[in-house]
Amino acid sequence: MLKNRIIPCLDVKNGRVVKGINFVDLKDAGDPVEQAKIYSDGGADEICFLDITASNENRDTIYEVVEKTSKKCFVPLTVGGGIRSIEDINKLLNCGADKVSINTAAVQNSKVVADSSKKFGSQCIVVAIDAKQNGKKWEIFTHGGRNSTGIDAIEYAKKMEECGAGELLVTSMDRDGTQVGYDIKLMSKISSKVNIPVIASGGVGNLNHLLEGIKLGGASAVLAASIFHYGKHSIKEAKEYLDSKGIPVRI
């Protein structure tokens, strides 16, 4: 039976791990290579790096981090943040990333998704959707949540599936950093509308939130950051909790 995945996400800035509360007020939580190794040894099903300041700063540090990590971690490694072009994707994959997560560039030009999934295969193309509730709808935001676009998140998700995305990483901008749980309505709306796996993100504060993301949100995988980083919970605890609630996990 296919297992639901638990993915710790490490926000990386200048080669160091940080986690922002609503994308500001950053704290330093260590070396990404070492952290990734701790997570993979601890049973993480995948590792995700998000290069948070990639849009406006020198990106070369992330390549080095990816290269070092991929020599030590033998679980899938997804890298996102600031990916603009096929060339960026190629470079990250060559450094040892297994998947890339494309956000702003996909919104600006869906051809990036279509072309890259054709060139590298859908299996390595994750489209990251940052959405914020606006009345009864959800709107797509870009540039790390700074810019609104007016695009409907549900329709956009379907479009990205058609373009060849292999997975969707859905983050609720309302919930990110709040620790009050995923936006379940958003997750379930998207996961029921597309036939590709959805990774839920944004807002995890306790283990029950992971359960909700899978059970109520229909997510194939759950992504979280701070509950793992600061030692609140281990990956093992998360898996044992989900297992006790009848969710299939790899233990």
């Binding site: 039976m1 296919l2 297992k3 639901n4 995945r5 099903d45 859908s122 299996q123 292999g166 997975e167 597309v194 036939n195 590709i196 796996p197 194939s220 995988a221 790899r250």
Partner: peptide, 16 residues
């Protein structure tokens, strides 16, 4: 065969 959309494709993740 995704059984009319019941199973998401690709088959991504850890399986026995």
């Amino acid at each position: 065969n995704n059984q009319n959309g019941e199973y998401k494709l690709p088959h991504i993740g850890w399986n026995e």
